[in-house]
Simulated scan of single mutants.
Amino acid sequence: MIWDWVENTALPGHRVTTKRELTGGYSNHNVAFTTDTGDTYVLRRYLGDDAGAVEAALARRLAGVVPVPEVIAIGHGALVSRFLPGRPLSEVLADAETDADATVVEDLGRSTGETLARIGTVSFAAPGFFADGTLTPGPPGIEPASGLDVFVDKCLAEGNAAGRLTDAEQRALRTHAARATPLLTAVHGLRRLVHSDFNPKNLLALEVDGRWRISAVLDWEFAFSGPPLVDVGNMLRDPRPPGFAEAFLEGFRAQGGDLPPGWRALSSALDVYALAAFLTRPPEHRYFQGALARIRDLLASAD
């Protein structure tokens, strides 16, 4: 039993008194719980690959760089971390947009950009993906930002796009990926920390002294070593409240984030990896449906 492990190994001597399910992603299930000491934690259970060792190692590496939950224990395909206060950025932005509160939107946009730039200050020996807690990028010689055309073709062939994207749309997406692939040589060799799911649902925000700031960056299971423009493309994929994108880019630059010539086309091309990967998820999944809409927008703007 997972809760036996929590009480006897992860937090020996503690007893769980309350539990509350948190909104989760496709690859994990999260439960906030309080113990008899009054402390609150989060139990994260991986539904796919066990990324606990990687997330724990990244939490240690990021201490003092950006706010991340402290990892208490890993095991049994799960991770226990301390609960950090804050509201999902997605919720705060929705409220601010409803209230037409431009100051809140701009504060959060700027803080989000600053946070992303600080993530990019963490570097590794090479580009690549993390297989374990050593955070050694691999496999050797693999460039994460290469082969976009091959990746898109594979996702279309093996995923669930058939019957949801027309044959013409699938051909157009393949053509778009083939044209974008050579552009990405501009970011080959970059070896910065990439969150790879950097969007408002994975960020917490807090109001401190009348100003809103990012208080935590969550869900690092997809992180890798590569070009930070991956995260820029992710954050700008969907429409944001007026003023957010401009403040986000301003904060990113001010904190030292690099936006090279042609960065918009590069970040958009890098985001196609995620959109294509979403096509391999079940058609009823919200990410699948969102990917269809975003791909159609992308193809329309490319005409």
Rank of each mutant, 00 (worst) to 15 (best):
E169N: 06
A96H: 03
G147I: 06
A131S: 14
T34D: 13
D4L: 14
P137G: 11
P241K: 03
W5L: 12
L89R: 05
Y273S: 06
D209K: 04
I142S: 15
V6Q: 09
F151K: 13
T134C: 10
R164Y: 09
A302C: 05
S27Y: 12
A63Y: 06
G52Y: 02
E114Y: 02
D153K: 09
E70Q: 14
R213D: 05
A300H: 09
V217T: 00
L236F: 05
G120Q: 04
L184C: 02
A216Y: 03
V68I: 05
A125G: 14
V122M: 11
R15C: 08
G75A: 00
D132S: 09
G138F: 10
V92H: 04
R174S: 14
L229E: 09
A180N: 10
D149W: 02
T280N: 01
G243S: 01
G251M: 07
W263A: 06
N160E: 14
A180W: 08
L229S: 08
G210L: 00
A223L: 00
G290I: 01
G226D: 01
D219C: 09
N8E: 15
L135P: 02
T98D: 12
L58N: 05
V6A: 10
R192K: 12
L184Y: 08
G290M: 00
V54M: 08
G75R: 00
T112F: 05
M235R: 00
V104P: 00
V6I: 12
L58V: 08
G24T: 15
A100E: 15
L62Y: 01
E55V: 07
D39K: 14
A117Q: 05
L270W: 01
T98Q: 13
S27P: 08
A276S: 10
L190G: 07
I119D: 05
S27Q: 14
L84K: 07
D153A: 14
V122W: 00
Q289W: 07
R240H: 07
A276K: 06
R164W: 02
D50R: 02
L62C: 09
A178V: 09
A57W: 02
P127D: 10
